[in-house]
Design a protein around this nucleic acid. Structure first.
Lengths: 351, 351
DNA sequence: ATGAAGCATGTTATCGATAACATTGCAAAT
DNA sequence: ATTTGCAATGTTATCGATAACATGCTTCAT
């Protein structure tokens, strides 16, 4: 371990500069209230001692850590990584630091993480999803800090929400495929009776099914198999199941582009032509969806924007904290956009 | 904001349980030294008050935060996300929390982040890369905590290192292409005279060039264009530049699979057959490289393992901290593996 | 002149835990 | 019976900052 140089404290700085610690603190926190002469003296002393303030002590004293807890299913999904980055970006100017936890799509893990994070006394919590264990919900309600649920539109938000309707995403996907004239329509998702479940993906499937039923079609081709998170293999596998069940399927919606890509590759392998034999669409607008040949029709979410919006909301809420008791609970809908590319095409004339 | 319930302190718990705060502290930190009877009393009080310990206070007192700072170029690259996840996973059992910062491939940003992070008094720092600003290096040396440089093999590590040789990766790539009989060989990388530079990618290019020169070939087809991080577009763009310069190029190494995919798609668009017209390989073994058609030859790094190894090393070092002064500086090489797939093939007979 | 207002700075009292040492009580050893 | 030793718990003194209030000195209007 590198040479442990003796750490200077604020007290050391204050002595060297010939002022009180409070003045040093002010120079760091609010330079304008200090006269220029002393500010310079203090800065020089800080420089000279290579003083690094101790935010742990500062946090204890001020009761503000400037930590924001962000709880996501995984970092390995580029959409969530983008959200984390957008959030971090938005909070950085105000000097907030993200405390990231990931749940692996498990609610019990989410609860565990929330409990552990609360001990770090974050100034706010951002959590993906609107479904939590009872204990988790209670802990967040009692925490006395702003809570933002993201990546969906909760009916009864705990506090604030920034997201879009996964249900409507599913509906939009189904409507798109219907509008192309397809009637034999399926979907690829993951199971929700396992430990690790993608509840947002499930909402999309639910919305998808609802449209099929309204159109008088069956939703029996909505496949749920495998644990979240989905993978390329998941797409290949579930497409196989689907084809087994209904060789004549005309159009498929995958809950994630990752699955969609896997399904597309499986089509290549089986000699199924996309989109002439089968229309295929995904969700998320991952880079790969655009780069695939043929490029995959998908639903675009501006995940980074979602993160940034969340950050902006938080800055506002945290800024007003002392002001008018509590800012009204708010819900921001960032929407989504269906991006029609090459993997979906009108149904061919009836055979 | 949800109802701010009054927060119980350890003192409240101790009073309710009829013991001292020290006993409560011990129940939480080291249950075995407390008698079962009091442990139960205390646990009940904790439960009853919904007590959540304050780690901020605890950290100040114990001078251990259980924070590990991880500084990476970006979270948006799945390799780095994997490393972060592996590291977090390894440290979790010991109750360490990751403090993630990302530099956007900028050294000045790295310095800024290190400075900010040090104020949080992390127990260790993990940083991607072996090149840092002078100030950054000094800060880390003086911090008096373990430092681990990852994702490369530094000649003079600050403290510890876990990684692989990017230079050797470049050499392995060149050797592979040479062994297939190619003579007209190029590479795709990013510029290093800009703010955001990928120094590890540059090492790979350097290793690549060295082999070409040793084989008596020119390295004029090693293209450096665009800022890090590279993108699909980067691959397409730089391949265009390369083809412009040398329409007869036979084989190409991209510093990242992302670039390689972009290049492959550009080949599709231009009607260039891979690998018969052009051999192509990348680096990183991203999921997409395997799923592409044809599947891309690449160099595999077990990024998650790299993270986990780093975590294991840290646990060991942090565990021994008080023991034998300082564990000797160590360097772990996790190696890499060339994965030969469908985009590289032997050179055709001379035209 | 003179008191009010305001700027710059200092003082005092925490913030909520843990380290280190001190104490108590009881069982085993002699 | 007395000592020794250990197990279980308590006491005291920080850890390094910041909030809130206090003070001293200018400056300016009347």
């Amino acid at each position: 371990m590198p040479s442990p140089s003796p750490k200077a404290t604020m007290h050391d700085v204050s002595r060297l500069a010939g002022v009180s610690t409070m003045t040093v603190s002010r120079v760091l926190a609010d330079p304008d209230v200090v006269s220029e002469a002393t500010r310079i003296k203090v800065m020089k002393a800080i420089e000279q001692l290579s003083y690094v303030p101790d935010r742990v002590a500062g946090s204890l004293s001020s009761r503000r850590t400037n930590f924001i807890t962000a709880i996501l299913p995984t970092l390995t999904n580029s959409n969530f990584a983008d959200t984390a980055q957008g959030l971090a970006e938005a909070m950085r100017p105000a000097d907030y630091q993200l405390l990231i936890g990931y749940t692996m799509y498990r609610l019990e893990e989410e609860e565990r993480i929330i409990r552990a994070m609360l001990a770090r006394r974050p100034d706010a919590i951002v959590v993906a999803g609107t479904t939590h264990t009872k204990a988790a919900t209670e802990m967040m309600m009692r925490a006395g800090i702003p809570i933002v649920e993201i990546w969906d539109t909760p009916e009864h938000p705990i506090d604030h929400a920034v997201g879009f309707s996964n249900y409507e995403v599913g509906r939009a996907a189904a409507l798109h495929l219907l509008s192309l004239g397809h009637r034999r329509i399926g979907a690829l998702g993951s199971r929700i009776d396992s430990d690790a479940k993608d509840l947002r993906g499930e909402s999309r499937l639910a919305g998808f099914s609802s449209v099929l039923r309204e159109a008088g079609l069956s939703d029996e081709l909505v496949i749920r198999e495998g644990e979240a998170p989905v993978s390329y293999d998941h797409g290949a596998l579930t497409l196989g199941i689907l084809l087994n069940k209904a060789p004549d399927v005309e159009a498929v919606f995958a809950v994630s582009d990752i699955s969609a890509v896997g399904a597309l590759m499986e089509c290549h392998r089986r000699g199924i032509k996309v989109p002439s034999d089968l229309s295929l669409m995904g969700f998320g607008d991952f880079d790969i969806a655009r780069q695939c040949v043929p490029a995959i029709t998908t639903i675009h979410i501006d995940a980074e924007l979602l993160g940034r919006r969340t950050g902006e909301l938080l800055l506002q809420v945290l800024g007003n904290r002392t002001a008018s008791e509590s800012v009204t609970t708010s819900a921001v809908n960032v929407g989504f956009e269906l991006v029609s590319r090459e993997t979906t095409a009108p149904a061919r004339a009836k055979r």
